[in-house]
């Protein structure tokens, strides 16, 4: 067991190191000059003098491995760079946005997983019947609608015409709400982006679980459970679904990366002040240091979730201990 843990941690450390290096290299690989690219958003003329000064400032005259070392040291200190466009340290900008994204992503991830699983399990149990078929068709339809379109639709109907929900932001500005009212306000702002993000994920979860369930139902242990006279619902969830959800957990890491991409669009549409909106702004303003910082944080986030899932996986499937 210890071996397995060490192995997983080593693999992840290597991955992180490699990804950080790639992230470090990325701006340097951009066509043209780094300095020019970085400051292209500024309305200043870069004279030779200024150029040399900037090269000195960013340490670009040093050898590349020294540059990388400095980058790592700065990273270890929590310094992700400085956004010249926002006039603020990147870390501060990201840390302001991160909680909103986490709130949105985590809530929708859990919600869609629960809803998708229940629907998938129930659907597979009555496979081929009307309930299953109508669920399957509607899920495929929902899956076909891009989250971008869905978001715009919701925004138009529920905010612009209906006026039931706010059109932007994560809370009412300058309202000085506190306690329950504050939480209510946050939830009120959360509902539309959350619904959109959740809806866009449910079909994937549903299809995965339904498929996996259909295979699981044929397993001998389901027959064993039935022979034992166990109640239908217990066979369904305790015996079958308990096994059918395993592929879902294996894919959490990959799915999370997709969700983080998805959140970019949704936060932009609803002007939700999370990492997604920040990324959008960084891209449109050509804010390279900020973009680089966001990438680093996302990478670390996805890998962190992955490592947690990997380490916890043997609790979910006792067989994996032997698989390594």
């Amino acid at each position: 067991m210890r071996n397995r843990t060490t192995k997983i941690v080593t693999i992840y450390l290597l991955t992180i190191f490699f990804l950080l290096f790639l992230n470090f290299l990325l701006p340097r690989l951009l066509p043209g000059d780094v300095i020019l690219a970085m400051y292209s958003g500024y309305e200043v003329t870069i004279t030779d003098e200024l150029y040399n000064e900037l090269v000195q400032l960013h340490g670009l005259n040093k050898p590349i491995h020294v540059q990388f070392f400095i980058y790592l040291v700065q990273l270890a200190h929590g310094n992700l760079g400085y956004s010249y466009i926002c006039h603020a340290p990147t870390t501060t900008l990201i840390m302001d946005a991160l909680p909103w994204t986490l709130l949105l992503v985590c809530t929708s991830f859990v919600l869609s997983a629960i809803i998708g699983m229940i629907l998938g399990v129930e659907s597979s149990w009555v496979r081929g019947k009307r309930t299953d078929q109508s669920l399957l068709v509607s899920m495929l339809v929902v899956d076909g609608v891009p989250s971008l379109a869905m978001g715009i639709l919701f925004l138009t109907i529920f905010s612009l015409y209906g006026g039931w929900f706010p059109t932007s932001g994560a809370m009412t500005p300058y309202s000085n709400l506190a306690g329950i009212a504050h939480i209510k306000d946050i939830l009120w702002h959360l509902i539309l982006p959350l619904t959109t993000l959740t809806l866009s994920q449910i079909p994937g979860d549903y299809l995965l679980i339904r498929n996996s369930m259909i295979l699981t139902i044929r397993e001998p242990y389901v027959l064993t459970a039935r022979a034992k006279g166990i109640k239908e619902r217990k066979i369904k969830y305790f015996h079958a679904a308990r096994n059918a959800i395993l592929p879902f957990f294996t894919r959490i890491g990959i799915r999370l990366a997709y969700v983080i991409t998805g959140v970019l669009f949704i936060e932009t549409i609803f002007a939700y002040p999370g990492l997604g909106l920040l990324t959008y702004n960084a891209i449109s303003n050509r804010d390279l240091p900020l973009l680089q910082g966001i990438l680093t944080v996302s990478v670390l986030l996805v890998l962190l979730i992955n490592i947690v899932v990997d380490l916890l996986y043997k609790k979910i499937d006792p067989r994996v201990e032997y698989a390594y």
């Binding site: 242990y221 034992k228 006279g229 499937d317 006792p318």
Partner: peptide, 20 residues
Amino acid sequence: RWNEISIVFQNYGDVLNPVH
């Protein structure tokens, strides 16, 4: 089932649930 009659299935594949 299992109160009046019980069965020992052929011990082939996952007759027992692998996660319990």
